[in-house]
Design a protein around this nucleic acid. Structure first.
Lengths: 213, 213
DNA sequence: GCATCAATTATACGCTTGCATAATTACGAC
DNA sequence: GTCGTAATTATGCAAGCGTATAATTGATGC
């Protein structure tokens, strides 16, 4: 009876890092940051805990990479179908709808985001990622808004565009948050209608019509 | 040389519980949930750790009470100056302004809220507190909105009122969140103007004028 | 096949955590 | 005063944490 050592396969660095990041996100989403221990992450990724230290010199480094991956994924999901629309108004409507619809609106996703926020407030590098993600999203939103307004014959100046983007972004974020944190508080599709109406009211554009196309 | 035992004063249960809750909130705000250990809380409250178990049968119980206290305080701060206004429109404007102004908008406060969110997702009682806080706030907002619209001669039906309240609440929450999470991203008073304009646009009311009074 | 070497496992250390329990002490009742 | 008791401190424990390091093993080139 030899002490049977665990069998394993060698994997490339990228594969393993990604698997570890995914396991981390899964766990934080399911059980909060508390549940994402080194041991739990390793088990979820079907690996022993020592390997984590082989790929990440510290746990915070892994968490930071996971945060980056989550935020990038969120932005990507949100903008997924946007470019396909032909009109600027249609693209804006598509973005608004996607922002308040699964898989973007999701309890686990919001929980993940909240779980990271405290790390963000304490770690300078994570704060940088946070700020950049926010500004990236808002800038893209602002460009869509400007394009839609110009399409309607109304070109806002820079200050107006900035303020409109902040306001629309707030509506979207607020609904995203509430839809994710309190799923049972809203009827199906209710958030979609509210988001289109509210953003439409702020911009004085008919987004509801544009969303149907 | 007697082993000098620490001196102490006896306090009423309410005083001590409140002090412990306050210490907990301080620590979560400053260092995130990680930093709010039983020992750290006790030290902050100038007490030894055993006392916590004397007043709370478990740490989660203390955290839950702290959450309740934080949310109640937040709502109270937000509605603080609202009733003083004479017109319904003025009250609504005051609420909007207070929602996006310190001390309601505050990095620590947002961090606190985010820190709790993961507990909320896992503990049924905390979820109940969360849902109730949200609905309380939104109901009060909805009543202010209905009053302001009626004052302007437009009475919305129940469905409209609900949707308007959800939308306005989303703007407020979104700006609160972003103002707290990224304080340096906005000019002073910028959020106030944006909030009034956006909520005004959604309701088709002139809140900016009403806010000046 | 065999040597090589990074990928992976195994084990352990020191620290912190939440919780329990026993020993003390302040303070009001009488 | 002194006595009882609830409030408070002191001490300890078992479990879990992140990290470090040494021992193994799978794949690759020759």
């Amino acid at each position: 009876m030899t002490g049977e050592r665990r069998k394993f396969r060698r994997e490339g660095a990228d594969t393993r890092r990604q698997a570890l990041v995914l396991a981390t996100l899964d766990l934080i989403a399911e059980q909060g940051v508390r549940g994402a221990t080194v041991r739990a992450i390793a088990e979820r990724a079907d690996v022993t805990q020592g390997l984590i230290r082989h790929y990440f010199s510290t746990k915070d480094e892994l968490v930071q990479e996971a945060y980056l991956a989550h935020m990038a994924g969120l932005t990507e999901q949100t903008f997924a179908g946007v470019a396909e629309r032909e009109t600027a108004l249609g693209r804006l409507a598509a973005l608004v709808v996607a922002s308040v619809t699964p898989p973007v609106v999701d309890s686990a996703s919001v929980g993940l985001w909240a779980g990271f926020l405290n790390h963000v407030r304490q770690d300078a590098r994570m704060r940088a990622v946070h700020a950049q993600t926010y500004h990236d999203f808002r800038d893209r939103l602002e460009r869509l808004i400007v394009a839609a307004l110009e399409e309607a014959g109304r070109g806002p100046d820079a200050g107006q565009a900035r303020r409109l983007a902040i306001a629309c972004n707030a509506v979207i974020d607020g609904l995203w948050l509430e839809g994710g944190a309190l799923p049972e508080a809203f009827e199906p599709d209710e958030l979609t209608g509210i988001a289109l109406t509210a953003v439409g009211a702020i911009l004085q554009l008919d987004l509801e019509e544009a969303a149907k196309t």
